[in-house]
Amino acid sequence: MGSIIETRNLSKSFKHFKAVTDLSFTINHGDIYGFLGQNGAGKSTTMRMLLGLIFPDSGSIYIDGEEFNNGRRHLLSKIGAIIERPDMYGYLSGWDNLKMFAALSDSSIKAARLHEVLEIVGLKGREQDKVKAYSQGMKQRLGIAIALVHKPDLLILDEPTNGLDPQGIAEMRALILSLSRDHGKTILISSHLLYEIEQVATSMIIIHKGRKVVEGKVNSLLNPDETFIEIDILPDDVIQHKIEGSEWKSMLSTAKHGSLTFKMNPERTPQLNSWLVGQGIGVTEIRSKHSLEAYFLSLTDDTVITNRAI
């Protein structure tokens, strides 16, 4: 499997603001590639550069091994995209919107294909309604239908769960997984929520302030052994010396008054708990958090934690 997207040292500034700096990454065929970053980290700018909406100051983009600027038109026909909100012509029906954008991508697309994609995204039966009467979720689905209709190899979905209710988010996740598994699409999906990426992506990149922080396979980045286990204990208990002499010593990350943090595979949490209790230590709460998430959270603000609860 070769790369479908490769960027080399992409940089883009607006006025005096550096949106993206020296960004290089590779997306392989068949990947669901998670693009993770806070709001304003440069995700949208990067995606727009991949689509030719924004021109990079320097660096290059290769799609299927071909320099983007040299083959913009035919390369774009290999891509389907939703950037930010899925905005359509509200005064036209879903069908008319789909038909119009389909014709712009490939004039040979037949009505049967339109029905097919409406079926895939689950909009069948509502296609004759005017788009202004659509819910946010329906607009997202229509957006994906438009992105899919010309059978692109690559889908670029910018925050596709934005503005959706919990059920909508779950459905969107299922749709993305199905597009990858059943339709063989390579998907680039961005989010500011780690767990969203974690649930669907095979590879991922985290960017912060326009720079790459980390890139890799999700299952290696999210290696379970890298999980932080935080344990709250009764403040009076003195346990430092007890841990020193135990098998848990190597996993202890930090020990503060009334709080311990271990870095270990969460599967062993019950054993740790029972050992602590056996030592006569009063455990009040145990939390687990992957190191990557802990790291990512340290970059982001509180709202992300609140979102996490959803």
Partner: peptide, 13 residues
């Protein structure tokens, strides 16, 4: 309306 970016990601110069 936001449709411009969708229009411009279509393979048209």
């Amino acid at each position: 309306l936001g449709t411009l970016r969708l229009l411009l990601t279509k393979p048209i110069s």
